[in-house]
């Protein structure tokens, strides 16, 4: 998987890689080995900075970089979710055009660019591959229950959180990590996953719970 990342980088990205790796990567274990898009953009601009350029100046060059960095990963995500090659291509276009059109809605204080793209790709997939609605809260709904000290309103450093999560995922026992990836990337219920792995559903649930307990602990120092 690791070497595949390097060999499967689309050409424009591979060419610019020399410039990109110039920045020392002060990261942990797994992240040292896997070059994430966030790191690759590091030398010139983070994905979040590129996004600001798109939002503020309609900067096409910045958009091209984001497309090159995230398009192939969004495509891989969609194909694992059951899209064939052609519809995955179409959906990548949709997702990246949504990024362009909704650029001003991106709030780097709330999420990293990769998180934002993940949610856009997820919702497009549900809409298009499942033909279903995604029920979501309306943050403006007067009926939404808030606390004076609403944890959902707390400001977090999204980039810092993402760094902690990368490190914490790398430290999960392999069966928990594997399950987490299955749960996120295969469009399957936990009972179907359990069946396929020949595990009791309870084991699948408890492994996911264990993984979450560890990830939560890793974020605690931060929030």
């Amino acid at each position: 998987m690791l070497s595949a990342v390097a060999t499967e980088i689309p050409m424009p990205l591979a060419k610019s890689k020399v410039a990109l790796v110039a920045r020392p990567a002060p990261r942990v274990q797994r992240v040292m080995r896997i070059e994430t898009p966030a790191q690759k953009t590091g030398a010139e601009a983070s994905a979040e900075e590129l996004m600001s350029a798109v939002a503020e100046r309609r900067d096409r060059a910045a958009f091209v970089r984001l497309f090159e960095l995230f398009g192939p990963r969004v495509k891989a995500y969609l194909m694992r979710q059951g899209a064939d090659r052609a519809s995955a291509e179409d959906l990548v276009q949709d997702v990246m055009l949504t990024v362009w059109h909704r650029a001003v809605q991106f709030d780097r204080n709330k999420a990293t660019f990769s998180t934002w793209v993940f949610t856009i790709a997820r919702n497009r997939r549900i809409d298009s591959l499942r033909r279903a609605n995604r029920p979501e809260i309306d943050p403006e709904d007067p009926a939404l229950v808030r606390e004076p000290d609403d944890p959902a309103d707390q400001v977090v450093d999204a980039a810092e959180r993402s760094k902690h999560l990368h490190a914490a995922v790398a430290q999960l026992p392999v069966e928990q990590e594997r399950l987490l990836r299955l749960a996120y990337f295969e469009d399957k219920s936990h009972s179907v996953i359990a069946e396929e792995l020949a595990l009791p559903l309870g084991t699948v649930k408890s492994r996911l719970r264990l993984a979450m307990t560890k990830l939560r602990a890793a974020l605690e120092t931060l929030e």
Partner: peptide
């Protein structure tokens, strides 16, 4: 919100699937 951040992290770690040749051009 944290779980969506995790989704972003896993997406970053996802292997890349090369795009069709004209993909970027079409988007632009």
């Amino acid at each position: 919100e944290r779980l969506e951040a995790l989704g972003g992290v896993l997406l970053e770690e996802q292997e890349a699937e090369p795009l069709a040749e004209k993909s970027l051009e079409q988007a632009l």
